[in-house]
């Protein structure tokens, strides 16, 4: 077994386990902690895909900032204890059925392995394609279409910030 394959399985199995634990825990705080673990593992997965910069962003923004917000809200609303907040009976079965139906669709149609003709990946793109420099140049390259979405994203974030303030503040 090549070391890359070993690393993949070492990351993939705990990831799926963490994801399952997120949705099975009674305690939201636990769910949040498993989600942090899940995201850190995903960051490792990004590293194994030689996307170093995205991995760093994943750790800082997702595992860091977003999850802190989750935990903060859980503590703020004092929801730390175990809670029976699962759908019961028919609702639960329907949700699981949907999930399994989706999985069956993915696997049954083989979409996960279709269309993967030989890519243009080279040793160079593998070695340098994921550095902050490469991503940054691509992001601001006028020949590529990413500059405009990037600017729009800033407006989306601004709206989110303003919206969150408006929603959560008692009095403006």
């Amino acid at each position: 077994m090549r070391p890359g394959v070993l690393i993949f399985w070492l990351l993939a199995v705990p990831m799926v386990a963490c994801a399952l634990l997120v949705i099975t825990s009674r305690n939201p705080l636990r769910s949040a902690l498993f989600l942090v673990a899940h995201m850190l593992l995903l960051a490792g997965m990004f590293l194994s895909l030689s996307a170093q910069y995205v991995a760093a962003v994943q750790v800082v923004v997702y595992a860091g900032a977003i999850m802190v917000l989750f935990v903060f809200v859980i503590m703020l609303l004092n929801l730390g204890g175990a809670q029976k907040m699962d759908a019961a009976g028919l609702g639960w079965a329907l949700g699981i059925a949907m999930s399994l139906g989706l999985a069956a669709l993915f696997v049954g149609t083989g979409v996960w392995k279709s269309g993967l003709h030989a890519g243009k990946a080279t040793a160079k793109t593998l070695a340098q394609g994921g550095t902050a420099q490469a991503v940054g140049f691509a992001l601001f390259d006028p020949e590529l279409p990413w500059l405009f979405p990037f600017e729009v994203a800033s407006i989306v974030l601004l709206m989110a910030a303003v919206g969150a303030i408006v929603l959560a503040k008692r009095k403006l």
Binding site: V16, A19, V22, S31, D86, G95, I96, M98, V107, W112
Partner: peptide, 22 residues
């Protein structure tokens, strides 16, 4: 395939949980 599996787990959670944070 891993991505698909994780996505399905997420869907299952969205469809069954009553706690909006989760």
């Amino acid at each position: 395939l891993l991505s698909a599996v994780l996505f399905c787990i997420g869907v299952a959670g969205v469809a069954t949980k009553r706690n909006p944070i989760v």
